[in-house]
Design a protein around this nucleic acid. Structure first.
Lengths: 186, 186, 186, 186
DNA sequence: GATGAATGAGACTTCATTCAT
DNA sequence: GATGAATGAAGTCTCATTCAT
C-alpha cells in the first residue's frame, strides 16, 4: 500500500517471485492471480508485464542466462564430446526442474527481445558444440543442429509424462538423455 | 429396438467426426463448438460425451486400437529387435500425425475405461517387446518398460517444438527415433 | 430465473425494452448494464445481441420501419414538394424524439443487415422525392440526394446542442427545418 | 521570477501542441496519452489541465478568439446581410476544419471561464448581426438568435455524417450553409 | 513544480454446464 | 432422447486519478 519510485523495482521483483511460486506449483499463470497474491493492483502487474508471456519469460530469464554462461565455458572444453554431452545434460536438467524454462524453450515466439537473444545464444552454442563434436568424429552426422533444443524439450516433456512427482523426473531425464547420447555418439 | 437408437448412433458418429475435424485443424475442442458444427444441440453432445476428455479419447480410440493390433502382430515377430523398433516407430508416427492421440497418450488419467484398457495393452506390449529384446541381448538394460511410452510422447512433442508444418514433422520424428534406437541397441 | 424456449423471445423483448429505457435516459448503452437491469445473465444479452451496436440498431429498427413506410406513401403524393417536405419533417422529428435513431442514422456502418437495408430504403426514397421535386421545378438543384440524410442528422443534432430538455427540441427542429426547406424551395 | 516559470510555460505549450495533434488525428484525448507523447509526467499534465475538457478548450481557444475577432470586424460591415452571412460561414468552416472547436462549441458547459467568455462573445456578435439583418429587412424573423450557434454546429455535424475524408467536408458545408442562408434571407 | 508508479473500479467477453421444454 | 437458451463465474484489460518522492 506504499508504492514509490524505489519500490517499482521491489514490486517488479515481488511479481516475479509470486509468478515463480505459481509456476512451480503448476498453477497456470494469470496476471490477475499474480496481482492478488502479490497484494498489488492489477494495473501494477500490467504495467510491469503487459502479457503473461512477458512475465513467464522474465521468470525464466535467469535460468536461460545460466545456461548460456555454462555453455560458453563448455566451448572451451578440449573434449568436444564431453562438452556437448555436458551442455545437453544441463539443458535437459534445467527444463526438468523448471516448468517456466520448459515452456519458454518450447515456444516458437517470444514476448521479450532478451528472451529471443538468449535463446539464440543457447542455440548457437549448441550448433558450435555439435559441429566440433562432429568434426572430431565424436558425433554421428544424423542430427541437425536445430534438432538439439527440440530434443531436449522432448526429453523434458517425456519426464513430465512419466511421473507427477518432481523427484522422479531427474533420474528419468538422465536415463533418456544417456540413451540418446549413446545413439548420437559415433 | 426403437428407431431412436439408430439416430443416437448416427449422432454420436457425427459428433466424433466433427471433433476429429477440429482436432486436425488444431482448434481446441469445445463441446459447444462441436455441437454447432454438428448441427446438434449442446445437450445431445453432453449426453454422449460428458467431458471434452471423453470425446477426445473417443476420437483417439481407433488409433489406439490400431496400435494395439499392430503390437500384437509385433509380438509374433521372430526378430525381437526389429519387433521393438517397428512398434516404437509406429507409436511415434501415430502421435506425430494425430494430435488427439498425442494428448491422450500423454495424459495421466483417462475419462473412459476403454482408453485405460487400450493404453494398458499398448504399455504391456511394449513391456513384452522390451523384455524380449533385452533377453535376446538386442537391447541394453538401461531403459525401463515404463519409459517407452513417455519417450515416444517426448519425441512426438519434440517434433511439434521443431516445426509448425505437419509435413516437416515426420522426417524429424524419424531422425529422433533412430538416434534413440541406436542408443538403446546393445 | 425461469428461462425457456418461449421466453427466448420474451427475454429478447425485455432486453430491447431495457435498452430503449437507457437510450431514452441518455445513459450510454452497456451490455452489462442492460443485463443487470433486465435481471438476466450477461451471457443471455450477448447471445441475443453480440455488440452494443446490434442492440442499438434493434432498438431503432421500428422507427426506421415507420419512416420507410411513411416514405412509400409520400412517393404517391401528387404534390412533389409537399411530399419531400413532409418526408424530411418526418425524418427530423423522428431523430429528435429518438436518440437511438439519431445515432444509428448518423453512423456510417451497421451491425445488422436489416439496418443497412432500411437505411438504404430511406435513402432511396429521399433520392426519388428530391428528384421529383427537382424535375417539377419545385426544388433547387443545389443539394445532392446524399445530402438529405446528413442534413436531417445535422438538424437533429442542432436541437440537441440547443437545449437539454426534450420538450424544447421539437419546436426548434421545426424552425431549423422550415428555414432549410425555404432555402431549398425554388 | 524563478526559471521554473519559464519551464512551466514551455510545458504547457508542449502539452497543448500535443493535444492539438491528437485532436487533429482524431485520437480521443487522454491525459496519460498526452503526457507520454509530450514526454512529461502525467502529474505535470494534470497540474496544467485538471480535466480533458480544460485541455480541449485550451486547444480550441485560439480559434474561438479568431472567430470573435472576425466577428467584431463583421459588426462594422455596412451590409448587414453580408456581415451575417460571412460570420456564419466563418463559424461553420472553423468547426468543419477543427474537431476541437466543434466539440467545445457543441458542449453546454465549459471547464474554463475563458471559454465561457469567448463563447458568450461569439453568441453576442451573432445576436447583434442577426438583429441588424432583421432590422434592415434582410433576414426573416423566424430564427432566434440562440439558434445560430446550434445550427452551425448542426451543419458541421452534417458534414461529419456525410463523409469521412476531411477534404470532402468543406464543399458539403458550403452547400448546406448556402441553402440555409437562402432560407433565412428575406 | 515535476515525476510516473500505483491503484482498482469497472467494462468487456467467453465458455462449461444446467435444465425446462 | 434431443434441444438450445440461459447462466454467471472468471478471466481479460483499460484508464482516470492520486500521491509519495
Amino acid at each position: 500500500m506504499t508504492p514509490q519510485r524505489k519500490d517499482a523495482a521491489r514490486n517488479s521483483d515481488r511479481i516475479v517471485a509470486v509468478a515463480r511460486e505459481l509456476v512451480d506449483e503448476g498453477t497456470p499463470l494469470q496476471l490477475n492471480d499474480v496481482a492478488r497474491r502479490a497484494e498489488l493492483g492489477v494495473g501494477t502487474v500490467y504495467r510491469h508485464f503487459p502479457t503473461t508471456e512477458a512475465l513467464l519469460e522474465t521468470v525464466a530469464t535467469p535460468r536461460l542466462e545460466t545456461i548460456a554462461t555454462h555453455g560458453h565455458h563448455a566451448l572451451e572444453d578440449d573434449d568436444a564430446w564431453r562438452a556437448l554431452a555436458g551442455y545437453l545434460t544441463l539443458l535437459v536438467e534445467a527444463q526438468v526442474s523448471d516448468p517456466a524454462l520448459a515452456k519458454v524453450s518450447a515456444h516458437g515466439s517470444d514476448a521479450l527481445p532478451r528472451t529471443t537473444e538468449l535463446k539464440q545464444r543457447i542455440l548457437d552454442i549448441g550448433t558450435q558444440l555439435l559441429a566440433r563434436a562432429r568434426d572430431t568424429g565424436a558425433a554421428r552426422p544424423d542430427l541437425a543442429d536445430t534438432d538439439l533444443v527440440p530434443l531436449m524439450c522432448g526429453i523434458a516433456y517425456a519426464t513430465y509424462v512419466h511421473s507427477d512427482t518432481p523427484t522422479d523426473r531427474l533420474p528419468a531425464a538422465r536415463r533418456y538423455l544417456d540413451t540418446l547420447l549413446r545413439g548420437l555418439h559415433a
